[in-house]
Nucleic acid binder design. Structure first.
Lengths: 231, 231
DNA sequence: CACACAAAGAGAATGTGATTTCCGAACGCG
DNA sequence: CGCGTTCGGAAATCACATTCTCTTTGTGTG
């Protein structure tokens, strides 16, 4: 959030006047704090990408971001809250990127298909060669997410909301267009998300850990059937 | 595995002759070792059931089973291997119980439906009020399973094999009977298992965390559509 | 300019668990 | 009876998360 996105001129990197102005106007302290928080988040994302999982230490995050333990615990309640923040950011970024991707497609059903296959690819992707946007391969955070589901249902729900809401919209769109009839759009959306995001399980258990390309369509077939029949 | 199952006479609890015979014939040491391993496993299952998760210490397991840390590390490489053993046992027990349940039903499609709805109930059940058999609510071990998927694909695969194989058989049965046409039974089986076992996600994300009863059928509808359309 | 002070870094101290190690008692066997 | 293996008990070690203390630095004020 520190940097403007790529479509707009990048004021932040060359414009000392702006820094000064912002620092002076908006309480200074606040923006400085936000910048420090962001440095922690960025360092965390880097670490997750590098080792494809969550097995890094808080020390690593601190060192990577050139800050101190003291500051870390000033801004975050603990590692758990850091991960939650990263997860939320990741889901949000994913939904934004997806929405952009979807903009080029107008057929409602086709939009849903694009949503599913794209998210699928991100979920299955090797965490190291990260997905295009600022979000992470879902796989890297899957165990955190499950832990969250067990302990803080409400947080899990709200963190997942961006993707969930987007998919709900897509489903209702399709329903409006008469391409689909749904008894319960919300639960259907949840089932689709679940099927897509936890696909690592079936990839591995079902053998053939290679054939990635084929299976995106295969899974879409499965989901499509599930949707279509629920009328 | 220490006790014979309920359908057979229980030789183990009253039959000193048998204990002696076994101990003398099969190398003695081996059976004694197996008994000790089993005590660790039993204690672990108890602990998981009691607090509905994996947040107990190795010390707890040791104390509960009246053995020593030293012995524990003699038999297991670490907590991870203990959990793996418990998970394998759990999946195996689940597949046995399911197979028994299925025996009373002859229609192939109906058998699949029974498989899915039963496993679903176990997966969603409150871990404390454990499922009927020796296996655990899948939910209690879900985060372990995901960790395993990330680190030891091969182990994850083989541990899940009992359920997977059983479902594969059911699918092929149905295919033989002409009730179904499947392009790739193995991947379909994996998708079904995934959808069923990780349903906690969609239960929570999709809101309505209560309505459990309805959703078993709802999910079966989703899966049925997915299967049926994949011809 | 010197001082008070909040912000931020360095890193030692603490606490919880997992994993290892050491020591001595109990047991099976010649 | 004495020897070697097995195993319990408990202390030692390690890795990390989390806290605490002390020092430095930047800033505004008299």
């Amino acid at each position: 959030m520190t940097n403007a996105d790529a479509h707009a001129p990048d004021f932040s990197s060359r414009a000392p006047w702006r820094d000064r102005a912002v620092a002076r106007s908006l309480d200074g302290a606040r923006s400085r704090a936000e910048e420090r928080v962001q440095r922690f988040l960025d360092a965390t994302v880097e670490l997750i990408r590098e080792n494809g999982g969550l097995d890094f230490t808080v020390q690593d995050v601190v060192a990577r971001s050139n800050q101190s333990l003291r500051s870390f615990y000033q801004f975050f309640d603990g590692k758990h809250h850091l991960l939650l923040a990263v997860y939320e950011g990741s889901m949000h970024a994913a939904s934004v990127t997806l929405a952009e991707t979807l903009a080029s497609e107008s057929d409602p059903m086709e939009r849903i298909r694009l949503f599913v296959t794209t998210l699928y690819k991100w979920s299955v992707a090797d965490p190291i060669e990260a997905p295009p946007a600022a979000h992470l391969a879902v796989r890297s955070m899957a165990d955190f997410l499950l832990g969250l589901l067990a302990t803080d249902r409400e947080q899990a729900r709200s963190a997942s909301a961006p993707l969930f809401d987007l998919l709900c919209d897509l489903l209702e769109e399709a329903a409006q267009a008469g391409a689909l009839t749904l008894a319960n759009p919300r639960r259907t959306a949840a089932l689709i998300l679940q099927t897509t995001m936890f696909n690592a399980y079936s990839m591995i258990v079902g053998g053939d850990p290679e054939a990635h390309e084929a299976s995106a369509e295969e899974m879409w077939g499965f989901i499509l059937g599930g949707i279509a029949s629920s009328r």
